[in-house]
Design a protein around this nucleic acid. Structure first.
Lengths: 126, 126, 126, 126
DNA sequence: GTGGTCTAGACCACT
DNA sequence: GTGGTCTAGACCACG
């Protein structure tokens, strides 16, 4: 498992930051099905974050079907077929860009302009 | 001038919603240079929002160079050259997509997939 | 008489801008004792400013002893001896810098630092 | 931390008074990097001022880089190098005197006269 | 009439 | 507990 990067300074809630990063690692294949996650307390200590925050993240991940918790044993990455992963990935991408595109339309920005910017961003920036 | 749509239910602050809409109308040419905006009190009444909320929006717009306020006289859309408008528009689009493209890269999503989704969203959704 | 420069954009009230400029011209000798000023209405028209604003400026200037108004004849620059002018000039300078120096002291800034900055500002900037 | 002095009678807005005093204390070294400021509500109560007024002050200070706020945790003095502090201090002094020196030039006042007045003010007045 | 500021009290999300 | 936001009503200076 890769490390996570949490920033207090961001205006994105910590639990959201964590959630996003874990989902990203699951969808990109870095976190495999069945992986046993560290306990809430361990995680909290390592990230120097409140236990409550980790708990909230885990809860959200369970709701979305990415995790399952087995009482007394621990928390595991759900078993998802490749097809399901692909589907979730596609849905996520769609959701991410959905509001962006709407906003662009209200700005009277053509599809071509958007595509150009995306190309640009994808190639040049880290 | 078109009307504005404010939602108290949204988790986006009202002043931010207003800010975005006004910027959109300026950049898309609906609000022309020199237009005299309604007084903050009129605006507040019409949108059923506090004076202070409008004031905050105006302040942010002034800082970004979209408005200028003359005490005791009113508030006007700044005079911006077409070139400046284009520039601001481009910067805005870039900013809108910037972090989302990054997120996709960390999800291991190819440029082509993104472009496809964008095409799709742009054409089908209102 | 030189022209005056009024800015709506400034956060300094118009009557104050005018006041300052007239006092400056009197103290620097550009406006001589006894000069007959234009009527309030003429002045207002030329500066594209409300009559009320000019009236307020004139009143303030009279209070400070720079003007005197003779009913039915007009408004004149007061007759002041060179010595009085020098005195007023000195007082004005003292007043101008008084709060600045106080502020610097609270910032723990040495006299030498201030003098250096003044030299710098006086020589380099227009 | 020293106390702050707020006057409702002054024509300087409260948030500005506070801003100036905090900047002064940071630049003069009284408020050290990393210091945890009282919560906006505590501050508001102590100074008998509205929460919103403190919030506004904090916002301005954040924009200028003096503070950083962590939602749900508190507000801290930014970590600034001594060099940065010196730079900010110098800029501030320059800004303080900038327009006043200009005014003096338009009054035909020599550099020597200004320097003399400054010396005088710096030594004699509290 | 305009903008500029302020208060007091309230609700929400995050930790 | 923290910050983030909002309202409703008020006072002031300016034009």
């Amino acid at each position: 498992m890769k490390n996570f990067f949490i920033s207090n300074m961001s205006d994105i809630p910590i639990y959201q930051q964590l959630y996003d990063q874990i989902v990203a690692q699951i969808l990109s294949g870095e976190l495999k099905s069945g992986t046993n996650l560290p306990s809430i307390r361990t995680m909290a200590k390592e990230l120097r974050v409140s236990v409550i925050t980790i708990k909230k993240t885990w809860e959200e991940l369970e709701k979305s079907g990415y995790l399952r918790t087995i009482s007394g044993k621990g928390t595991y990455i759900s078993t998802l077929t490749d097809k399901t992963l692909e589907k979730k990935k596609y849905d996520l991408v769609r959701e991410i860009f959905s509001k962006d595109v709407l906003q662009c339309k209200s700005l009277d920005i053509s599809k071509e302009e958007i595509l150009e910017v995306i190309e640009d961003l994808y190639n040049n920036k880290k």
